[in-house]
Amino acid sequence: MLRKLLVWLGVTLMVFSLFLVFVYVPTERTMGIVQKIFYLMVPMGWLAILSFLIIFVGSIFYLAKKSRRWDNLAFCGAETGLVFTTLALIIGSIWAKPIWGVWWTWEPRLTATLVLWLIYIAYFMVRSFASEEYRGATFAAVVGIVGFVDIPIIILSTTLWRGMHPGPIIFQGGLEPAMLFTLLVSLAAFTVLYVLILTQRVSLRNDQMELARLKELYH
């Protein structure tokens, strides 16, 4: 019931945000129509960090309670997070080409996203290299906690590193009200979508666990 409601809310918000992005919001003057990628890039970046928050919470409770449910949450958060972080990198690259003329630039936010992506990879590596499954879960939880705490420091250091560069215009001096509204609707739409995807992933993982348990019984 709740899920059905969420699906409808998500679809409505998503259609509304697409309308806002392509029809309603004024085109930015200096960058032209490409600037509209911005309404896609910010939600992707937000989901990349939100996922890591979920890994962090799941990891802490897993270490404290040792219950599979929390590890499942952290694992699913990591997988969906990896998907959205990868998307954030791809979108960043598509944004960089027309604006700066290159496919990749060491812009602070893009750089921070890349480092975050590498930590996501480390999270999965340590899990697959553990000798037993429960150990992999513990080790991954450690990486999840350390990684999440690292995020603000990564952002600080990459900003300082490229400090002499002028940041993209849109991030300075605030947004026009219409643009801000569009951005907020896009953020809401993608957050609802994310919740749906995450719950779907968790339920899939629970089924996988159930199957593994049954197979154990069978043998």
Binding site: I33, V34, K36, I37, L40, M41, M44, L87, I90, I91, I94, W95, K97, P98
Partner: peptide, 9 residues
């Protein structure tokens, strides 16, 4: 570029 970004996502 705009269309590419949206369709990839």
């Amino acid at each position: 570029f705009l269309l590419a970004a949206f369709s990839i996502v």
